[in-house]
Write a protein that binds this DNA or RNA. Structure first.
Lengths: 165, 165
DNA sequence: GAGCAACTATAGCCGCAACAATATTCCCCG
DNA sequence: CGGGGAATATTGTTGCGGCTATAGTTGCTC
């Protein structure tokens, strides 16, 4: 029953993910970041103006809106982010990456890429990697986490509301 | 910078994993189980005597020993598990799956396998799946989460101490 | 323009899990 | 046999994050 190939398949996916996540977390910690904080920084840094409304930030990450409120609280306290009132909609506020935040991200990214290379992509022959990524993409497209989706997509640019002026 | 293929690769792995996890969690919930509880049940059910010492249970799962203490508390309260004193070592105690626990697992497993088939293995051509699993195995073996490892392994049987008698 | 539903961010409350501290038991070594 | 260090499980403490409630804002409808 438990040696069903499907169980094995899920086990491999889960363990590979868990192992990589642990490596990532360790490297993030060297730079004083948690995984969520790194995620926030990357999401914001790839957005126009290095900013995103709280709601959109939540939609693009693994956190709820209240979760975003709190992680932004912490990162603002640490000087990595800054809240900015949205001029066109007084309900909204932007989270903006500060210079310190960008700098921190710049310090962190090279090591992150190196770790991916070392423990993931570099472990596989090019053909294997290609097929593996195709397969993951098919699965991803099928399950479509919805809110979590979009990370590998081009760039939503203006997800719901225009930044206005 | 952010469209680096390595970033994309990790994104796919993370999103595929997140999407599948969400599907699993929803199905577990139909049977009144959380993902950790399901994990505990499967680990115990595949162990000799349907039991494992608290420490070994922690070593084989994603939880710390105190985490195991508490989830076993809850599951014992719900009648899925039972604590049993270890006769050969009075420091240790076993977590044993009850009949109700086994029954719950039997109710949950078919649907779980069906979901894996539906959203993961069944999404891929046999060749693709084979290569993908090989790749995941290579990555898994490389990162070797250590404690988390072993889920797809045969069976540790007696990880640290002999059950004795 | 007034009313109302939807949207946005936040705060209260709760459960979960990791870390550290603690109590008990075991085993090695003399 | 006795002492000390390791092992085992539990509990206290802490932080995180989801859900719900809430307050403020917007835009639609009449």
């Amino acid at each position: 029953m438990f040696d069903d190939p499907r169980i094995t398949a899920v086990g491999l996916l889960v363990e590979a993910h868990a192992g990589l996540s642990a490596r990532f977390a360790a490297q993030f910690e060297e730079h004083g970041l948690s995984p969520v904080e790194f995620e926030m920084l990357t999401r914001l840094a790839r957005s126009p103006g290095n900013q995103l409304r709280m709601t959109d930030l939540a939609a693009q990450t693994s956190l709820s809106t209240s979760g975003v409120t709190r992680v932004v609280d912490r990162m603002e306290r640490d000087g990595l982010l800054r809240r900015r009132a949205c001029p066109s909609d007084r309900r909204s506020s932007y989270a903006v990456v500060t210079a310190a935040g960008l700098e921190r991200l710049d310090q962190t990214l090279p090591g992150h890429l190196r770790i991916i290379e070392q423990w993931f992509t570099g472990q596989l022959a090019p053909d294997t990697l290609r097929v593996l990524l195709d397969g993951l993409r098919q699965v991803r497209d099928a399950v479509h986490p919805g809110a979590t989706a979009g990370s590998t997509e081009p760039n939503p640019a203006e997800p719901t509301a225009p930044p206005g002026g």
